[in-house]
Simulated scan of single mutants.
Amino acid sequence: MHIESLEYFQKIAEVKSISKVANSSHISQPALSQQIQKLEDSLGKQLFLRSNRGVKLTEAGEIVLKYADNIIRTYNKMLSELTEQHNEEIKIAGEYTIATYCLPCALLNMKFKFPGHNYNLISDNSIKIEQDVINDIYEIGFITKPTEENELIAEKVVNEKVVLISPNSYHLPEKINLVDVLDQKFIVLKEDCIIKENFKQALKNIDYNFENINIISRLESTEAIKTLVRRGFGVAFVPYNAVKEEYAANDFQISRVSDYNLDYDIFIIHKKPEFLSDSVKEFINTFKALGKHICY
């Protein structure tokens, strides 16, 4: 017995007409009649009494109709569960700038490679991400430093370029030495982050204190920083992925510090392979193989 034949049977029993079901289902009437005949043959019972006015269920047909709905719904539920098996949701957490600017396009590229994957992405701080991966809240995390947690594996996957953005009216060169930007008005994130840490270390290397630079605003987000720079209030160090669209639109300038490397690495963290599903291992291996090309 084919489930398709049972579905046709249910429709015919409802409208009491083979021709109407044939028309609505875009199948020829002889072909549909043949489907019903095969169903009757497989059950060894006549299901319909046919006449010029349509069809009527036999006693056997009434019994089959009673069970048909449950059989069809059970079959569809089975298909749904089989589909969900191949559409496993992978829960991913990333530090704010990674989750906001780097991972969305990266996950879109991964979705093209694995249509059966579904990704649930959130942003958080690195300590929380590490603990949530350990506690199976997320399968994968993206942070800016190698983890020290013994239960986790951390592997470098992408190097994020850091650029100095400035208003177009400042006319800063594309390459600039660190000391040559220290007289600028700076806009920074309120919270500590890898960019601020690397900037502080670079200043320390030239015997300059971070607190001595002219910070005109400490903001909650990179989006807010971009707004102030766009309006001509100062300069800021940001991830290139966070500003490449605005730069292409000529909203502001981009400069690179030539004598100090402010770039940072992005690490993928996860549990040991024996604790991971096949889909998660598939994601991790492909993400690592794509490396720097994952975001472009």
Rank of each mutant, 00 (worst) to 15 (best):
N214C: 07
D259E: 07
N70D: 06
I143N: 07
F252M: 08
I284K: 00
N285C: 05
I92N: 01
Y101V: 01
N205S: 15
S80Y: 13
I215S: 06
F48R: 03
M1K: 09
I12G: 02
A242D: 11
N87W: 07
F199C: 02
S258D: 04
S33P: 02
F237C: 10
N109W: 06
V162H: 14
V157D: 03
S255C: 05
K292G: 09
A99V: 04
K128N: 00
A99C: 06
T222V: 15
I18A: 01
N205K: 11
E14F: 07
G116N: 08
I165F: 07
T286P: 05
I213T: 03
K66N: 06
K113I: 12
G54C: 05
T147P: 04
E245M: 14
N76D: 02
K20F: 10
L79H: 09
I206D: 14
M1T: 01
K244T: 11
I294T: 06
P173E: 06
Y119S: 10
G232M: 09
K226V: 08
D278M: 10
Y96D: 15
C295Y: 14
F199M: 01
N76S: 10
K16H: 07
Y247A: 13
V181K: 15
L57K: 05
A242H: 14
V15K: 00
Q85R: 13
N177L: 11
N76M: 05
